[in-house]
Design a protein around this nucleic acid. Structure first.
Lengths: 243, 243
DNA sequence: TGAGTTAACTCTTATACAGGACCTATGAAT
DNA sequence: ATTCATAGGTCCTGTATAAGAGTTAACTCA
């Protein structure tokens, strides 16, 4: 139990924020959980409601918590819409969002390559799960994806041959393994299509593709998924807005 | 003068926020300007300091205002660092930010193409300024850019033949024309290099390039710049972080 | 049984106040 | 002239209070 002291560890509301974050990422408050009311927390922690409010405001701003007036404050959940709209930046050239349709090509457990181990912060040679799949946009194969996960964090996944993998993996991580993806870093490059990828996408080898290398992390910063997507951008594009 | 009424137009702090926004985008408070203290504003508008604070918090979160403890609150300025780090997402593959070196190829005033007029919300055939330039990263030509501006908003720009255009255009817009770029929307695609672009970049035609189509807007949403960048992503990449 | 009302609880907005930290300018002392 | 201390302004943090609005559940009444 962390003690809250006003002169010691910086601003009180930051200490409260940290404490709430720990309870969430530690699993005490799983996604969808109704957290205690501001007043209860204030009494419990021995601070004023305004201080709790400021901490909660912060977490709401970071999509960690969700307020509902009259009901309470909840730990954010990756429903399908959020997973799709928030973590899937490909949209049609007409600006319309399209929901991708996935087809898994393979799903194996095997030792990590060096680069994968480095990115996922794993010991060299640790076992990973590698999922290869294609995704259709508007019924046309548009994305070829390679997804790498630490095998230790996802027991059972991909062991049974006939397992159905859902369209939105982030929901699966959250519901089956209690792992919530909270943020991600993406690196974008233009690359030439390899023969294999070209065949899957029905295009000529060497055609330009948008390559997205994404490292997804949980709330506490642990990397949990390395994903490389190669996207055909003839009828769709990657949308990025910033202020 | 807008009147602030508590039951009428929604929450008070949003009315305050709107009023502040108007003063900024209207030019009454130019970039770098020290705005009145929270207490003065509160007295002036007939609300409490906390309400002003909430409105200011909002604008600080949107990079419109900048607080400085002990000094006051200022309208945000596009200094070179900010312009570069905030609106230039290309970084080296080692994660290092590099400052680009620009070389202007041409700068002309001419009628807008249909697509340009549409994007910039101009009447068909309105005059625009078109700037073509290349940008070096680490002393290697890496980006070919085409920049289109509404000519009416930028008098004199590009009329004198020998004009030196600075490396960071957004500073020029702000300092010479009082136009502050506040947000931008980007669309990313992978394209094949045209013969012309390939020659400028010293690569073979058909090589994959990252094409970024950016529409930049002021605080009040007016589009002011359409920019198409074609980037070589062999030693650099486009970095996109999201939560 | 069923519908409508009420009560209790939540977040939301707004106000007021106070001590701390930070910055600047003024003035005093050297 | 330079250095130093001080005063007053600013934002920062924290507390306390209160009326409003949305939700839920229990309760009343027909």
């Amino acid at each position: 139990m962390t003690t809250l002291t006003t002169p010691g560890g910086g601003p009180l509301y930051l200490q409260v924020r940290k404490l709430l974050t720990q309870r969430i990422s530690g699993g005490a408050w799983p996604p969808g959980h109704l957290i205690p009311s501001e007043l209860r927390l204030a009494r419990e922690l021995g601070v004023s409601q305004g201080t709790v409010r400021k901490a909660v405001d912060d977490l709401v701003g970071n999509n960690v918590l969700v307020r509902q007036q009259g009901k309470g404050t909840f730990v954010a959940v990756h429903d399908t819409r959020r997973a799709l709209f928030h973590f899937f930046p490909m949209v049609g050239d007409d600006g319309q969002r399209v929901l991708p349709n996935s087809r898994v090509l393979s799903c194996r457990r095997l030792p990590a390559k060096q680069s994968e181990a480095r990115a996922l912060d794993l010991p060299a040679g640790a076992r990973v799960i590698r999922i290869e799949r294609t995704r259709d946009l508007n019924n046309r194969p548009t994305i070829v994806e390679s997804i790498v996960l630490p095998a230790a964090s996802f027991p059972e996944l991909g062991k049974s041959r006939s397992e159905r993998l859902p369209n939105t993996l982030y929901e699966l991580y959250e519901e089956r393994y209690g792992i919530t993806i909270h943020r991600a870093e993406e690196q974008l490059r233009a690359v030439a299509a390899s023969a294999k990828v070209a065949k899957l996408l029905g295009i000529e080898p060497g055609a330009p593709l948008l390559e997205i290398t994404r490292l997804a992390r949980t709330l506490d910063g642990t990397p949990v998924e390395l994903r490389i997507s190669r996207c055909l951008t003839r009828a769709h594009h990657y949308q990025s807005n910033f202020v």
